[in-house]
């Protein structure tokens, strides 16, 4: 058998179906309305939600988990709104992301931001300067934002220890 051609298998789809968000992947009938509605597909001619889902359905596990594609979804959910079969490509791609992360595939920017959020308790600790504090005071708002980082550190320990790999 040719090593470059893929042999279809339903195992990957079964795997995704077990992850929250991926349960109804097999309802996809490849009609294409998601891709037609997708704003990202409009501006990026390589991004095709329908194609990505068919790749999952035929079992291209490695390619899909290592790909950037699932991370380009904006979760705007227009596809979910329009799908007639009750499939949410946005949710499926979330499920793919979760699996990808477990196997060590995560875009750098996501990895860094997750780290940041869980350590500081929120995303923009670095960006909050004195200037911003003054601005808030001038507007009559409380400059002390009182973010809690204890809980997020607990969450990191419980769910994401060693998950964000190098």
């Amino acid at each position: 058998m040719n090593n470059e051609t893929h042999t279809p298998s339903s195992d990957f789809a079964k795997e995704i179906a077990l992850i929250p968000g991926g349960e109804v992947i097999n309802k996809c009938i490849q009609c294409g309305i998601c891709t037609a509605s997708c704003v990202v597909a409009c501006v990026d001619d390589q991004y095709r939600p329908r194609r990505l889902i068919q790749k999952i359905l035929i079992g291209k596990r490695d390619e899909v988990l290592k790909s950037d594609q699932p991370w380009l979804c904006m979760t705007c959910r227009m596809c979910e709104e329009r799908c007639q079969e009750g499939v949410s490509p946005a949710e499926i791609f979330h499920a793919v992301r979760i699996l990808a992360v477990k196997e060590g595939h995560i875009p750098k920017v996501f990895q860094i931001t997750v780290e940041k959020v869980l350590c500081d308790g929120w995303m923009l600790a670095d960006a909050y300067t004195d200037f911003n504090e003054d601005e808030r005071e001038d507007l009559g708002l409380n400059p002390a934002l009182a973010w809690n980082d204890t809980f997020t550190k607990k969450v990191k320990k419980k769910y994401l220890a060693g998950e964000e790999s190098a």
């Binding site: 470059e4 893929h6 279809p8 194609r51 035929i58």
Partner: peptide, 16 residues
């Protein structure tokens, strides 16, 4: 031995 193109996945596939 079967060979075909899956047009939606844009993939060359094979199956026995």
């Amino acid at each position: 031995k079967m060979r075909w193109t899956d047009i939606y996945a844009d993939e060359e596939l094979q199956f026995e």
